[in-house]
């Protein structure tokens, strides 16, 4: 069985620079989202040969190597120059991403395609279902676990208020929940192998975006009261706090 895990390397939050009027993550390292790391582990659990696929610039290679260290055996980077967006990592158009990935996957089909249910920065949960629709595949979203039964997959899914069991014919697409079991920490040897492993880079033609965007630091920041509740002891402080919360009708 061949599995492809689609990933979206996102900047390490702590390295994103904030200033009024702009959010700059261009210098930040890229990493896999927890749900994407779990997807690599889930694909391996199916006994599949796992490749990782991403539409990203060269800055995303570190995240692809992270996936290789977790057990993926191949990594393909669909090159993304992205002339339009000032901050391509913000990626306002999930449909565009899904179209680029689907064009590649039509020529390089897999029995199972996995995505993180939500990327590390935006968490819109959109690319997976869009990719499934473009490829005409059945989809299970928020997958916590999956097992193979003959020619179908049986997926346990978290749909918010309910846990749903979904049966899908193969080939199929799964979006993996952030609550799915995380992968084991890679060994030093696996990390070293991943550092040396070749990455395949493919030039692709991206469709024009249907929407675009711009990052702004909010000019509408709240104006906090910043009142320190002066009290002689912790009990008195708690009574003061509860009184304030009742006055403000939040409790």
């Amino acid at each position: 069985m061949r599995a492809v895990v689609c990933v979206r390397p996102v900047p390490v939050q702590a390295q994103v620079v904030f200033s009024m009027g702009a959010v700059d993550g261009t210098e930040a390292e890229r990493q896999l989202a927890p749900a994407e790391a779990a997807a690599v582990a889930m694909a391996r659990g199916l006994g599949a040969e796992v490749s990782v696929l991403s539409w990203t610039g060269p800055e995303g290679e570190a995240a692809l190597r992270q996936a290789l260290a977790l057990g993926a055996t191949g990594a393909v980077r669909l090159h993304r120059p992205d002339p339009l967006a000032e901050e391509p990592w913000l990626d306002p158009d999930p449909g565009r991403t899904a179209r680029v990935l689907s064009a590649y996957l039509r020529d390089h089909p897999a029995e199972v395609i996995l995505c993180g249910a939500a990327s590390g920065d935006q968490g819109r949960a959109a690319v997976g279902p869009m990719l499934a629709e473009l490829l005409g595949l059945p989809v299970a979203t928020g997958v916590l676990s999956v097992r193979r039964e003959a020619e179908s997959l049986l997926a346990e899914c978290d749909h918010g208020a309910s846990r749903v069991t979904v049966r899908l014919g193969i080939p199929a697409l799964l979006t993996v929940s952030v609550d799915a079991p995380p992968p084991a920490r890679p060994s030093v040897m696996a990390l070293a192998r991943a550092m040396r492993a070749p990455l395949e880079t493919v030039e692709v033609e991206a469709p024009p975006p249907l929407l675009t965007g711009h990052a702004l630091v909010s000019a509408e920041r709240r104006r906090p009261l910043r009142e320190t509740l002066e009290a002689s002891g912790v009990e008195e402080a708690c009574h003061l706090l509860m009184a304030r919360l009742r006055e403000r009708r939040v409790l």
């Binding site: 158009d93 449909g95 949960a125 997976g128 279902p129 629709e133 249907l210 929407l211």
Partner: peptide
Amino acid sequence: DGEREAEMARAAVLLEAAYAAR
């Protein structure tokens, strides 16, 4: 809200429409 988001994403593909999520 939950599964509705996946449904809207799939509908956006069928409509070839721009989709702004969450």
